[in-house]
Design a protein around this nucleic acid. Structure first.
Lengths: 303, 303
DNA sequence: GACAGTCTATAACCGGCCGTTATCGACCAG
DNA sequence: CTGGTCGATAACGGCCGGTTATAGACTGTC
């Protein structure tokens, strides 16, 4: 019934003392004010302005509206400014989820970039493996996920949603073969997976285990998975102790490379693709877009 | 840029969880909400709503708007209610000015009526003689004046403004001749002014003094004004002591009649008219109108 | 896996709000 | 008395903001 425009007019009349002056102050013409007041008066069913010959004065009811105008207009301005701050990257929040091996390298770098460029944008960060982070994204519990998919293999995870999600390629992460440095093959330039068919294997996260099984299957053997852990530091520890061999993405090694472990290229040349994933809507949120951009740049360095 | 309607929509979306439900809650159709959101988004330049398949969820910026909606809508409702209270006589203020002899009789009665009917309407009251009260009315310092004008004589005071002011007749106030009860003529049924031409006179307020001089002139003499005071209790005291005679409006006698003073009708039959005066605008303010109505009723009793 | 139900997006339409310009009448000053 | 200023009003027009109709997309179910 009463809107902000009406209050603004009443306040201008009170401040300026005449319709004409109020109109000038608001950038309107005088008749606009005249009939705005008339509308307000017939809506409220009360006289709001006392017309004196020279000037006008608000009645009690008019003063009530003018008084509230301050509150309401201030709140509207504050809301507008707060939204503008988010749009202008002077504020904003991004809830990021990334898988562990990116957490140590690309992600911190990207966060540093964002923080330097937009000090008031806050990026909160949780570790999560791809299926979990994508679920969180759909559930609205995060705004941006850094995920990966094995080349050719389970692209379906993301491919499924490629139209319903906004996917930005960050980098290709070459997978390597980790051997104890004392291993007889440790001196090779590269290895075929098959050469390690008899070794005990150490598997990483469930997806990585799946990838290992897939590669081994293609190579014609079924690996003996002796250990499983999602912690790649632990994986390397196990490898260093000679308890098995493992596939380790390059990305991890660039942040934590056990000195007793050598990482050799696979002749099968398998890689995983790392993506920044968000919803099409969120991709247009400035803070999210800025974070994605920073991730891309960080990936160029780390790739 | 952002208006209350937009905020209301954002809040409804947040509360209801979908455009359709929000539309139902606000009494709109779904497309109305759809394009309202779109407008808001292109005005703010930000994504406000995240479209998920089933439902929708507000983005950070959207939540900002929804949060402010509470404040703004509450203030608007409060303003509306406060104005409605004034319109509905559940609130309101009337600044009344009345001349002294009405203050003792009609006005208190009227104020009691208003107070009984509309307990929350507050009528403040100041005494003032007509020229002063009308000036205050024009200056916006009071809302309603109870004034008088002498029959036939200085109607011009109000007549001038009869079109620019709202004038309501309250009563005719017969003027009487006040004599000490011991006066030789005190036993008469009525007196001609001329019979007291030789007496010393006691005059009231300036206007009343003017009236006295006018009547005496018509009667063919110039009165010897021995005392002047605006206080009619004092006037009666002076009369009672035999220091002079006076013209006293009936209205005063009905509230304060000195026992040693007799008040006889004039054969000239002069009266003053008592009016409630306000501006045309203020006459439409419910509390003012109610007060005028009460004054009219009170005047019927006292007339 | 197809279908039904439900939700949003979009197009097309349209009425009324809310501005504008033009003009008049009232008031005050010089 | 006359000119300047202020408010009211009429006439007009753009566009905002609603409507209906319909299409497209996702979900849950059989």
């Amino acid at each position: 019934m009463i809107d902000a425009a009406g209050l603004r007019v009443m306040k201008a009349i009170q401040d300026e003392g005449s319709f004409t002056a109020a109109a000038a102050a608001l950038g309107f013409t005088q008749p606009a004010i005249s009939q705005m007041v008339r509308r307000l008066e017939q809506r409220t069913g009360t006289v709001l302005v006392e017309r004196l010959g020279r000037s006008v004065r608000l009645t009690e009811a008019g003063e009530v509206l003018a008084r509230y105008a301050g509150t309401v207009l201030a709140a509207l301005d504050a809301a507008e400014e707060e939204v503008a701050a988010i749009a202008g990257l002077r504020s904003g929040r991004v809830r990021l989820m990334a898988f562990p091996s990116s957490s140590a390298t690309v992600v911190p770098h990207a966060l540093a970039l964002v923080k330097r460029r937009y000090p008031d944008v806050s990026v909160t960060f949780h570790e999560a493996e791809p299926p979990e982070s994508l679920a969180a994204l759909k559930a609205g519990e995060c705004d941006l996920a850094v995920a990966f998919s094995w080349e050719g293999l389970d692209l379906s995870d993301i491919q499924d949603d490629l139209d319903s999600l906004s996917v930005t390629k960050l980098l290709d992460d070459e997978v390597r073969l980790a051997l104890p440095s004392q291993h007889p093959l440790a001196g090779e330039k590269s290895l075929d997976l098959k050469e390690l068919a008899e070794e005990p294997w150490i598997a990483g996260c469930p997806k990585c285990r799946g990838h290992l099984l897939h590669l081994a299957h293609e190579a014609g053997f079924t690996p003996d998975v002796a250990f499983e852990t999602e912690d790649y530091v632990a994986v390397q520890g196990l490898v260093a102790e000679g308890l098995g061999v493992a596939l380790i993405p390059d990305l991890i090694l660039s942040s934590a490379h056990h000195p007793e472990v050598v990482a050799l290229p696979l002749t099968q040349s398998s890689r995983r693709e790392v993506f920044a994933v968000t919803t099409p809507d969120l991709a247009r949120v400035p803070a999210v877009a800025a974070t994605i951009e920073a991730l891309v740049e960080a990936a160029e360095v780390h790739g």
